[in-house]
Amino acid sequence: MMMADEQAAVAQAAESVPAVSGPIFVEIFLLALLFATAISMIRMRQLFSVAMLSGIYSLLSAAFFVALDAVDVAFTEAAVGAGISTVLILTGVALTAKWEMPVDRERQILPLAIVIVTGGALFYATLDMPAFGEATAPANAYVGQAYIDQTPTDIDVPNIVTAVLASYRGFDTMGEVVVVFTAGLACLLLLGVGAIRGGGRNDDGEH
């Protein structure tokens, strides 16, 4: 009789714990790798290695997002963070210095203090956050639940992320596209004069 009660209690406890998508040690392993990559990026002085490590950092973040069941975010992180950003940083490194200049100890104190205070505030804020995947969390309860309920009847596409992105919040996505367009325009204005003329090299200052 006691055994059955205990089993029921255990089953109830297991149900009340929010469903974690993967084994917890996978997530801890990925977070540890992210931490190690970040530390080695700070300690590295050769900018080529730092650029490659930032690509590895993005790829690890993408794997972590997959472990959290956020495949769309993971896809974007892998394509943009690990792919394009790394190449753009490398082309930037190719145009500037290859090694980072050492910084005086005195000038490192203020950034360290800012980082520690900000990090502490973020850790303090996580104490108030609901558990991951909790159904009653504000992000899942109100408009998120409405999107999940309404997408089959309103829009009828299987990927709810696309439904939210392109239809429910199409106006936001238009703003994002304009932001991307503006970034390209800014690069064109600042760097790409030769590109308009047909890709010839920029020979400013030779006349």
Binding site: V87, V177, G184, G192, G194, N202
Partner: peptide, 20 residues
């Protein structure tokens, strides 16, 4: 279309310059 063109544009702008 916008994202592909912008990404290539940024890459061209960076890679098209002669490095020092």
């Amino acid at each position: 279309l916008a994202v592909a063109a912008t990404m290539l544009q940024i890459f061209y702008a960076f890679a098209g310059r002669e490095p020092e």
